[in-house]
Amino acid sequence: MAFTCSDDGEQSTLFLSGSLDGTSVREFAALTDELVAEGRRHVVLDMAELTNIETPGVAAVVALHKHTRELGGEVRIAGIDGQPLAIFKLLRFDKVFDL
């Protein structure tokens, strides 16, 4: 898993690539916890290069969604396709996130 972050003052965008799984989720969660602690309310997860997401990764995305909503913000998902999209649809997250 590799990711980069950009911030334009209004929103933070995380570009995810590879696999968001039990190993990589620690780094992802640390970064998203830092964003929330800094008061970042609008986060975009760009999943165009994400090839795989496992249960810990899904849980981390849900936790980020919960924390940003508590701040009055939102998480948006961009570029999701393939296996990650299939998982999100299976879990009916297409009703939660604008995919």
Results as ranks from 00 to 15, higher is better:
R41A: 11
T32E: 02
T55H: 13
V43Q: 07
K89N: 12
A48S: 15
L71K: 00
A86Q: 14
E34R: 14
V43C: 10
H42Y: 15
R76T: 14
A86V: 09
G73S: 07
R76S: 13
R69S: 03
K66A: 01
V36Q: 01
L50K: 13
G82Q: 06
G73N: 08
E70R: 09
L85F: 10
E38C: 11
N52R: 14
V61W: 08
H42N: 14
R40I: 01
L45A: 08
V36M: 00
G82P: 06
D46R: 12
V75R: 04
V43R: 09
L71M: 05
A60Y: 05
L45N: 11
T68G: 03
E38A: 15
R41I: 04
D46F: 11
E54D: 14
G57R: 05
R41L: 00
D81E: 12
A29L: 00
V36I: 13
E38I: 02
E70Y: 01
L35P: 09
D46H: 11
L85K: 15
F88N: 03
L45E: 07
V36L: 03
H67W: 03
R41E: 04
I80Y: 08
N52V: 06
H67Y: 01
G82L: 07
E54K: 10
L64N: 09
D81Q: 15
E54T: 13
V75Q: 07
M47W: 08
E34N: 14
V43A: 04
T51P: 00
L71N: 01
A59T: 09
T51D: 14
E38G: 10
P84H: 08
A78H: 15
P84T: 06
V58M: 11
D81F: 05
L31R: 15
S24N: 13
T55Q: 12
E54Y: 07
V58Y: 08
G73C: 09
L45V: 10
A48K: 15
G79N: 08
L45P: 13
V62R: 06
T51F: 00
E49W: 06
L85R: 15
G57H: 02
R40A: 02
T51C: 00
A63F: 02
T55P: 00
D81T: 15
R40C: 01
Q83T: 00
L64W: 08
R26L: 11
V25W: 02
E54G: 03
S24R: 06
V44C: 12
T55N: 12
G73R: 10
E49C: 10
R76E: 09
P84F: 05
E74R: 13
A78Q: 14
T32N: 02
E27Q: 12
I53G: 03
V44D: 14
G73W: 10
V58P: 00
P84N: 01
G79K: 11
I77C: 04
G82V: 10
K66G: 02
H67M: 02
V62F: 09
V61H: 07
R26W: 06
G39D: 04
P84R: 06
V62N: 03
G79F: 10
I80R: 06
F88T: 06
V62H: 01
P84S: 02
N52K: 11
N52P: 00
R40M: 02
E70F: 01
A60T: 03
A30R: 14
V36Y: 04
R41K: 15
T32V: 11
A29Q: 12
F28H: 08
A60E: 02
A78W: 13
A78D: 12
D46S: 09
L85A: 15
P56D: 03
